[in-house]
């Protein structure tokens, strides 16, 4: 039930609705629970709402840190 999916914002429809895309699926989600989003942001979608904006810098930092820790080249 707390399943939530990251999806890319591909269109801003109005102040509180965006169109998102994930793996080729498009959906409209409500953005009233998060701060301002912009095109290209990734949002976490749950029950028709974006509940958080994915911090992409943090995501890349995590991956870089792990690759360094485990001595694995970027794939």
């Amino acid at each position: 039930m707390c399943l939530a999916v990251p999806a890319k914002v591909v269109r801003i429809l109005n102040d509180f609705t965006v169109e998102v895309e994930t793996f080729g699926n498009h959906a409209r989600v409500n953005t009233s629970l998060i701060e301002q989003v912009k095109l290209g942001d990734y949002v976490l979608v749950h029950a028709g709402f974006a509940i958080e904006i994915v911090d992409q810098d943090s995501a890349q930092e995590s991956l870089a840190l792990w690759r360094e820790m485990y001595a694995v080249q970027s794939s």
Binding site: G24, Y42, A59, Q60, R67, Y70, V72, Q73, S75
Partner: peptide, 27 residues
């Protein structure tokens, strides 16, 4: 709109970086 493989999600490695996953699992 077709799925565009030219632009994979930057988040995909969390699910599909096999080399990193195997290294983490071994450790």
């Amino acid at each position: 709109m077709p799925f565009n493989r030219a632009e994979p999600s930057p988040l995909l490695p969390f699910n599909d970086d096999l080399a990193l996953g195997r290294a983490m699992l071994a450790r």
